[in-house]
Design a protein around this nucleic acid. Structure first.
Lengths: 193, 193
DNA sequence: GCTGGAAGTTACAGACCGGTAACACCCTAG
DNA sequence: CTAGGGTGTTACCGGTCTGTAACTTCCAGC
């Protein structure tokens, strides 16, 4: 039987899960490794047996978060098999849900804000993952039969990214409240070209 | 004669200027008060004689940065007196300049990412300043004779915010490179309605 | 020249940080 | 039963952080 937050899974998994959650809520520099291990029901030595440094843990967390995001895209395909336009609209709704239910924005973007050293090992990972996200959105737009797929995907990307930041600064009643309307009318106008 | 970075102005002004610069480059949690005072050519005691805490210094820095931003808007008015549409286009160009010349994004947004405590004193200041920014953009759009001024301003706000974040994650060659094209075609389509 | 306030200096308190060493424990595979 | 690897525990290192105390130095206004 699992007991509450920290499942009785293997320590490494608990650490990774807990670290993702705490980094998301309190920021990377706002959480120490001691706090993570305590919340994960383990200890610092065990963490350092599985991750060679906090930086590596950060990277693994970002990869795990991105993998969860990729899984959501797979759900779109499962729910609307072959219907790329429906998948695009599902993405818009999903984004709106995230904006309404979470006020801490994108972990990768937040990490990029916090980790200012240009040669920080996490930065290239962030760039890779964000480019993969963008590529997937471009492919979706293209496969939905939209002409200027790159431009639409980039525009939607910026709206998305901006909305997640805006929620953090002025809350979900600010400009981000109009995200669905903006995205839908954008998609419509690109389809009309 | 001023010697390099730290002008021979009054210590409080030097601290404020230096702190703005260092917070912007290295993040709030990435800079200690000792480092600020040293770079400002003064010392920690003097800082704490002028600011009651680091948090208050942060707030003053945000206000100062916002004031500089407001001054840019005044330049638009000076360069295109009465021509609100030209001022809107000047804003678009200015944003593009910022995206190309600075890779560290908006200080207020970055602060919101770093200061995760919901009751942090800086958070309400960030919200106030961001709302003021938004209000000014709405007014500009409305005075430019655009019908759905709020919606256009909110859309431009999200594009802007998203572009500044995107520069931090994937660089200035990513989606943010299309900002001008997106903004201009948006303005055109709103004007056509 | 004197005085008073602003600024500089040194030292320190107390907390937290990432990371490591040494050792005890437990549980499973053989 | 035993061996060994994964895990837990405690203590510690060296460094950094915000913030303060006590004292000295400087400089402008009178």
């Amino acid at each position: 039987m699992t007991d509450g937050v920290a499942e009785r899974s293997r320590p490494r998994d608990r650490i990774l899960e807990t670290a993702q959650d705490m980094f998301h809520k309190h920021g990377i520099k706002g959480v120490g490794v001691d706090a993570i291990t305590e919340a994960a029901g383990t200890n610092k030595m065990t963490l350092y047996r599985h991750f060679e440094s906090k930086d590596e843990l950060i990277i693994e967390c970002l990869r795990a978060t991105a993998a969860k995001g990729a899984a959501v895209w797979d759900e779109f395909e499962a729910q609307h098999p072959g219907d790329k336009l429906a998948q695009l609209h599902a993405w818009v709704r999903k984004v709106a849900d995230m904006l309404a239910s979470d006020s801490r924005g994108c972990d990768m973007a937040n990490a990029a804000v916090e980790l200012t050293e240009t040669d920080h090992p996490a930065r290239r990972v962030i760039k890779e993952l964000k480019q993969a996200q963008r590529d997937r959105l471009v492919a979706l737009c293209r496969d939905a039969g939209i002409g200027q797929a790159e431009l639409l995907a980039d525009t939607l990307s910026l709206l998305f990214e901006g909305a997640r930041v805006s929620v953090q600064t002025v809350g979900s009643e600010g400009p981000s409240a109009q995200f669905v309307r903006m995205a839908e009318s954008l998609i419509a106008s690109f389809r009309a070209r």
